[in-house]
């Protein structure tokens, strides 16, 4: 069962049960919809910007524990940072989740909880969907899918 505890770490279970920033922002500057047609993960992301800075971010929708906790952790990390800072974390997350590169726990911080996902290829899309969608929202795109 070690494999499962690697995948479903406490942080993931916690963020799944109590997702942070799980709200629609009525005054959002940007919004985007993310959908994984394979498993039905479906979320909407909202961003409030002040210039280059992400001052608030929220999401709602439904999906599996991996996608929901990924969205929750991502929104907690993005808030208060610039778009460029988000982009560099996105690149780090993407390269970790696809198993392209290994990083030490210090660099990864909370994202380390998602390291186990790269052992489950069918779940990589779940983890990355929120990131693609927020990335798209910041770039002015209204929709993202994992296909």
């Amino acid at each position: 069962m070690n494999d499962l505890r690697d995948l479903y770490q406490e942080i993931i279970l916690d963020h799944n049960k109590n997702p942070r920033n799980f709200k629609k922002l009525d005054d959002a500057d940007r919004a985007a919809e993310g959908y994984n047609p394979l498993c039905g993960d479906h979320y909407w992301f909202y961003v409030k910007l002040d210039g280059e800075k992400i001052v608030d971010v929220g999401f709602h929708g439904a999906g599996c524990a991996i996608s929901k906790s990924s969205a929750s952790v991502m929104t907690s990390m993005a808030k208060g940072h610039t778009k460029d800072e988000f982009e560099s974390v996105f690149q780090l997350f993407r390269s970790m989740i696809t198993g392209e590169s290994k990083f030490d726990e210090e660099t990864l911080g909370k994202l380390a909880a998602f390291q186990g996902v790269c052992e489950h290829p069918s779940r990589v899309k779940c983890a990355i969907l929120p990131w693609h969608t927020l990335h798209g929202a910041l770039a002015g795109e209204a929709k993202a899918t994992t296909e």
Binding site: L7, Y8, C39, G63, C64, A65, I66, H120
Partner: peptide, 13 residues
């Protein structure tokens, strides 16, 4: 308590 996708991964293990 769990999304079907999570159920699938866990029972697969």
């Amino acid at each position: 308590s769990a999304h079907p996708h999570d159920i699938g991964t866990i029972v697969d293990q």
